[in-house]
Amino acid sequence: MENTATIVLRNQKYEVKAGSTILAALNKLEILPESIICVRDGELVTEDVILRKGEIIKLVSVISGG
């Protein structure tokens, strides 16, 4: 298995480098941390968490319109 983790936002999957923080991955993907919250194994986590190899981080979009 490659040294990557998966980030999922609204059915879109992104392979990112494990070993760096979620924040670093968000910056690389140009996703604003203000517009999401991060969920690991059903638990809310902060963006300074280090991505583990093979794991999936789900991003919940927080912006609602209307």
């Binding site: 604003l32 912006i63 609602s64 319109g65």
Partner: peptide, 19 residues
């Protein structure tokens, strides 16, 4: 999101403010 609110001006303003 409400399907009619997708891409609305208020959503765009929220994105700008988040930047």
């Amino acid at each position: 999101e409400c399907p009619f609110a997708v891409g609305s001006t208020s959503t765009q303003y929220k994105e700008i403010l988040n930047q």
